[in-house]
Design a protein around this nucleic acid. Structure first.
Length: 258
DNA sequence: ATGGCAGGGCATCCCTGA
């Protein structure tokens, strides 16, 4: 079973690239962030033609998430956003696929550590942690994946000195990432040996991709039964080389067994 | 020290992203 996440930065612009990538990689599940589409505009038919059933949860201009699955999608226990956390922004979509609880999330950016958006980010992260704890009680096999907007460690940052204390790298955000790990989740990427200077996002500006200046902020966290089944985790830089690319690259894991 | 690119929307000399 192959499960992937990709922040596409507008599905309207990136749909052809998503279809290409699905044909290329044939993931069983793909979660998308920053679709930037209202629900009436979601391209469910084009994705169905490509063999994927979809769940989607969007809004105008900002945010928006979706969950695509080839088969085994249990739509009955779909969840949108964090239960009990009042939120006008479309950031979370969850469902169960072949017994795996898949939670796709677009974590708040936070803009700057002294901003209102950072306060919102921290409240959102706290609510997420509480909810994931309860989800784990009913779903032992759980994957939390998406654009976390957190670089968990300095080795996830191309220039840790320049980024020290900046958004995505503050101690408060990193403590929240560690709090998710304290629930028993593990960073699938770090279960394996990886190339140094591996990033999932590169700024559009400054030739950042060509110079490989980026951050690793897109993650797949897996619960213990999935840790045992995970055979690989990688970042696919290929779509970042496309014409009109997303600034994020997809991240994927492969699981043993059904 | 700043902004540099990209997407969306329909007002812009704008907002947000990361």
């Amino acid at each position: 079973m192959k499960i992937a996440t990709w922040n596409v930065n507008s599905l309207a612009v990136r749909l052809p690239q998503v279809l290409d990538w699905l044909a290329q990689e044939q993931p069983d599940v793909l979660v998308l962030q920053e679709t930037k589409l209202t629900d009436d505009k979601f391209p469910a038919d084009a994705l169905a033609d490509a063999g994927y059933q979809s769940l989607w949860f969007g809004q105008k201009t900002y945010n928006g998430v979706a969950l695509l699955a080839r088969k085994g999608l249990a739509v009955a226990d779909e969840v949108r956003n964090i239960p009990g956390f009042e939120d006008p922004q479309a950031r979370v979509i969850a469902a169960t696929v072949d017994g795996v609880r898949v939670i796709g999330a677009y974590f708040p950016n936070g803009q700057a550590p002294d901003s209102d958006k950072f306060t919102y980010k921290m409240a959102w992260l706290e609510a997420l942690n509480r909810w994931i704890a309860t989800e784990l009680q009913t779903h032992a096999s759980l994957a939390l994946l998406g654009d976390y907007n957190i670089a968990p460690e300095d080795r996830d940052v191309h220039d840790p000195v320049a980024w020290a204390g900046q958004i995505h790298c503050t101690p408060e955000e990193r403590a929240r990432f560690q709090a998710l790990q304290a629930l028993g989740l593990q960073d699938a990427f770090r279960l394996f040996e990886q190339p140094p200077r591996s990033w999932s996002w590169w700024d559009y500006r400054n030739l950042a991709f060509r110079k490989n200046q980026g951050l690793r902020i897109d993650h797949i966290l897996v619960s213990p039964p999935l840790v045992a089944r995970t055979t690989s985790c990688r970042i696919d830089k290929t779509p970042r080389k496309n014409e009109r690319p997303s600034d994020h690259a997809p991240v994927l894991i492969e699981l043993d067994g059904a």
